[in-house]
Design a protein around this nucleic acid. Sequence first.
DNA 1: CTATCAGATTGATCTGCGTCAAATACCCGA
DNA 2: TCGGGTATTTGACGCAGATCAATCTGATAG
Lengths: 248, 248
Amino acid sequence: MTLHEVPPLSLRCGDCPIRHRAVCARCESDELQELEGIKYYRSFEAGQTIVWAEDQMDFVASVVSGIATLTQTLEDGRTQMVGLLLPSDFVGRPGLSSAPYNVTATTDVLMCCFRKTPFEEMMLRTPHIAQRLLQMTLDELDAAREWMLLLGRKTAREKIASLLSIVARRNASIRLEVAEERMVFDLPLTREAMADYLGLTLETVSRQISALKRDGVIELQGKRHVTVPDMHRLMSEAGDDSDGGILG
Amino acid sequence: MTLHEVPPLSLRCGDCPIRHRAVCARCESDELQELEGIKYYRSFEAGQTIVWAEDQMDFVASVVSGIATLTQTLEDGRTQMVGLLLPSDFVGRPGLSSAPYNVTATTDVLMCCFRKTPFEEMMLRTPHIAQRLLQMTLDELDAAREWMLLLGRKTAREKIASLLSIVARRNASIRLEVAEERMVFDLPLTREAMADYLGLTLETVSRQISALKRDGVIELQGKRHVTVPDMHRLMSEAGDDSDGGILG
DNA sequence: CTATCAGATTGATCTGCGTCAAATACCCGA
DNA sequence: TCGGGTATTTGACGCAGATCAATCTGATAG
């Protein structure tokens, strides 16, 4: 669902240009049939809210294109991002009717939705789907816990470096340019969204990005296009165990 | 698994003094039989590590008594708690062999363990167990996300107030003294463990507890025994939506 | 080409929390 | 009861990051 290191098993259904990661690859055909019957598409404009916290959410979905975020907010407006949804990621709570956070499109977003009740019924009939979802949810829980370490204990510079290497890794796993020292990608987030991700202010984000640029850890073409000349360097700036990543 | 608002369905197996929350109540008898065959007990002393990060973990388990924590650590020793296990909570990753964090006993702990392979086989045979685990994992993911909001956006005072009301709520759901304005409980954590939970230093924790005491939000008998004269007051100090809790 | 506006950068200043250090309370065994 | 070690409190001080404010950049529409 978010921040996965490695794309898990998944299947391509019908005319969707992506592979839905919620469903197991081993038995594509049967589920494809069933899914076709209950799926539909919805598109959202940049900035639009997809689901409000506490609202009824009567579908589960995969992101087909664009970026969506999960955020939580305090009464006075302080907001924290708690999930980042990139194409092929899954949203929804089979078994529960509402989520305690807002889902927002940060770019134009196309989602492939499945009506919840039929989806849940299919889950009951095909047990390995529940197991597949359990797997994914456990992965996401691990990601959330790594994120907690970042929020609770890392410095601003480490936070930025961590975010950059997460985005780079995500990109790499899509483009299959793994294990390169050099890496080039576009930031899918504004400075403000990055701040909400990291528990910082957008000014601090900007300053730390400038600092990383000044120190030669990254290069920028425009505001969003990033070149990392040495991923090892970036990852050691991130403060994690140095061997935790995709690079030998 | 941790920080649940409401104790979910669960079952009592054999001579365990607790109800294991990992297993559905609807069909107790069958699973009881199966679980009896593969379970065993392990006890740990306060301070002892139950599982090291990256170690093989060949069992899943429920906490019977005592308190255990999940923690993640950076190379230089900064540590962040990412899970708090109270009696009846579940640990383990069916489907995966290792967890990326340390599990530590903070008090003497007794765990009721199930060997992983047989447990997973039982999961395959009884599909609603996977669904039950999915449910629990989703709850835990929600809790982790609320925790992220706390780590990223709350002040030290709000963090302390949040932790106190979480512990109070947890206690309340066990003792069934829900919906009282006044609440009395023991802190199960040292100041240092609280600091690791909240992403603070132990000095800041101590200072903020003193401040809450000075301001009449809480009273202390000794270091650990807490009286909250007005839960509404405490919860508004915590900064959440005021209606998010157990009180009307 | 210029006006406009959102996003981003940069600077100056302030402050909450961390750091370092010392004092105090508490627990348990001898 | 005393001693020693651990948990906790409290104080003084400094700094990372927040806040407030001004400027700059770049994309888009007219």
